[in-house]
Every structure is written in C-alpha cells, then in structure tokens.
C-alpha cells in the first residue's frame, strides 16, 4: 500500500521535470527539470528496493540511487560548464534562441 504513495510521488516529480524541461527557456531551469527526472527515478529505486523482494543483494536499489545522485552531480558540472562557455559566445542562455544549427 505504501509503495503506491512513493510511485505517485515519483511520477509527479517525473512529470514536473518533463514539463519544466519542455517549457522553460533558460538553460539553468531546463537543467533543473533534468534533476527532477533523475530524482524521480532515484525515489523509485529506493522505494522498489525497500518493497520488492530483490534477486541480488538486498541493497541493490539503494546503491543504484546513490549512483544516480553522483551521476546527477557530474552531469550538472559538465552541463553548467558548457552553459558558461555558451554564455561567453551568445551573451544569454535562452536556449530557444540558439538556432544557428538547423536543417
């Protein structure tokens, strides 16, 4: 019963993340959307790790969640670095105006 609650929460987080990703123009806000998506899956992993019987080690889900947090951090670093570089070139970070490459 309690599992459902986690799943609903994570689904809501995921949806919010997708919406944020698709609707914001600022690159930083879009990255925040990505973080939400990643966190949604982390919640899922932890919840499943607690409630479903694991075939492997009992902490599979939790370990995976830790990796996701690490991964989110690494991705943020790389993405923010690129955002900075792009800012130097364009003097703004409105992604929808970055349309040099198309076709």
């Amino acid at each position: 019963m309690i599992l459902d609650g986690y799943l609903v929460a994570s689904a809501a987080l995921f949806t919010l993340g997708v919406v944020l990703f698709l609707s914001k123009k600022n690159a930083i806000a879009i990255l925040m959307g990505v973080e939400l998506i990643l966190n949604a899956s982390a919640i899922n992993f932890v919840a499943f790790g607690k409630f479903t019987p694991s075939q492997g080690s009992p902490f599979d889900g939790q370990i995976f969640a830790i990796f996701i947090i690490l991964l989110a951090a690494a991705e943020a670093v790389v993405a923010l670095a690129i955002v900075l570089a792009a800012y130097k070139e364009y003097k703004h970070i409105m992604v929808d105006q970055y349309t040099k490459l198309r076709g």
Binding site: F21, I37, E75, A79, K100
Partner: peptide
C-alpha cells in the same frame, strides 16, 4: 558551444528517461 549545450540537454534528458 550551442551544439554542445543542445547535446548535453538532450543527453541528460535521455539519461533521465
């Protein structure tokens, strides 16, 4: 730089999915 930004956004979204 623009390409890299798009690439990283797309990539991280794909990772999230």
């Amino acid at each position: 730089k623009e390409a890299a930004l798009k690439y990283v956004l797309f990539g991280s979204f794909a990772t999230g999915i």
